[in-house]
Design a protein around this nucleic acid. Structure first.
Lengths: 221, 221
DNA sequence: GCAATGAATGAATGACTATTCAATGAACGT
DNA sequence: ACGTTCATTGAATAGTCATTCATTCATTGC
């Protein structure tokens, strides 16, 4: 009773690992598996194999396949929301900096990695039918919307943009980002993170010309 | 051998119907079923029940469940492309009319009905993993892109918009539309076809201010 | 009417998969 | 070393679902 319950072993591949590490390992295997095979062909067996572990491990650490999927979605949502904090911090110096940070974030490698996009869209397809998915996604959406809307509102006050409705711009930016994510996933040959960034910046530059200027357009073929 | 093989019976609910009519009936049942329960919970049994027919009927008229799903996707893609012809016709009088017709089309009731959006996104989630889905979607995307890109190019030539790259605008418009469709599906309480139309028009008005003017913004609550 | 045709049915089949649990063995305290 | 604990395994189980096919029955031609 004196000893502090030490982790059994440090390495990830060990035969026995602390629960939190196994859960993380399985969530990452789930992401790779969904990205490789789609949600429909993702089974307990394929995830376990991807993780290099046995079938039973998933029902041991998560209570069911459904919970594994839910936790995987929650993991991605949390990751996104944590990254948002950086943008929120930038917004404190100026709304423009905040918006630029958001665009940067949305098309940063770690956030819109192909594997993760595949998972997002796999879940979005089922979102309407699973209350749990819906809750997790709605929470993520809300924090995004609130932030971007606040930035746009500030910018409109500073810049005298009479024709611009902040709520509309925020909804538009959110929709544009989602659509570009979809392109990145399903048409990687004609969409890149860099191009997506330029399209988004061009949108913002059109709306807030006195605050945001898009980088000089290089020649398009 | 003399008689022309007549349709067995006219009514849809009859015990015997011409094959083409049964196929159509089953495709419509599939759309309702996917919209109501999601792709994951759409089974041969649920579709057959939705259509008011027996289990075996699907393997009789389509060779497998997979083919039923493929044909359903193809049906939606064809419907969209047919609707595009209207916009293509409008574009012949002027590119502005063409763009307006496209926006009109994308947020018209028949095209972005909730049931159909649910099916689109269900398939988009699996698109990456099924070559057949990919082909059908890619064909639809291409006809959209080609059309919109041509309209934007014409407009840029007519209007002297030095900073505007037609390809970028077309990609952006396409992404924006997809993103708004997603909102219409998963957040109907905060997105309507009318609002989506306004957001899209506001985007176009920002890009082509000398050709497209957005309707006066009514107060946003 | 009557036989022939083939559309439609739905119970039976076989494949697949989530979940369980008895057996295994690694890690730790003594 | 040795026994205890508990993470892990993987074969067995139970359930679901696509597909098949022998049977039923509406329709048509004669």
């Amino acid at each position: 009773m004196l000893s502090t319950k030490r982790p059994h072993r440090a390495g990830a591949g060990g035969r026995t690992a602390p629960p939190e590490q196994r859960r993380q390992q399985l969530i990452e295997a789930t992401i790779r598996c969904v990205a490789k095979r789609g949600l429909a062909d993702t089974t307990i067996a394929t995830v376990a194999r991807e993780a290099g572990l046995s079938q039973g491990i998933i029902n041991l650490h998560f209570r069911s396949k459904e919970r594994l999927l839910t936790e995987t979605l929650r993991y991605l949502a949390d990751e996104y929301r944590n990254a948002c904090r950086t943008a929120a911090a930038a917004a404190e110096s100026s709304p423009v900096a905040g918006l630029l940070a958001m665009v940067d974030l949305d098309f940063r490698r770690g956030i819109c990695a192909r594997d993760k996009l595949a998972v997002w869209f796999a879940f979005w397809g089922e979102r309407k039918f699973r209350p749990t998915y819906r809750r997790i996604c709605a929470a993520r959406d809300k924090s995004y919307d609130d932030m971007v809307r606040a930035m746009c509102t500030q910018l409109c006050q500073q810049g005298e943009y009479p024709g611009v409705e902040p709520a509309l711009v925020a909804d538009g930016l959110s929709a544009l980002t989602d659509g570009l994510w979809l392109d990145l996933l399903v048409r990687p040959e004609s969409m890149s993170r860099e191009l997506a960034r330029r399209i988004t910046m061009s949108y913002l530059a059109d709306v807030f010309p006195r605050h945001i200027r898009q980088p000089v357009a290089s020649s398009g073929s």
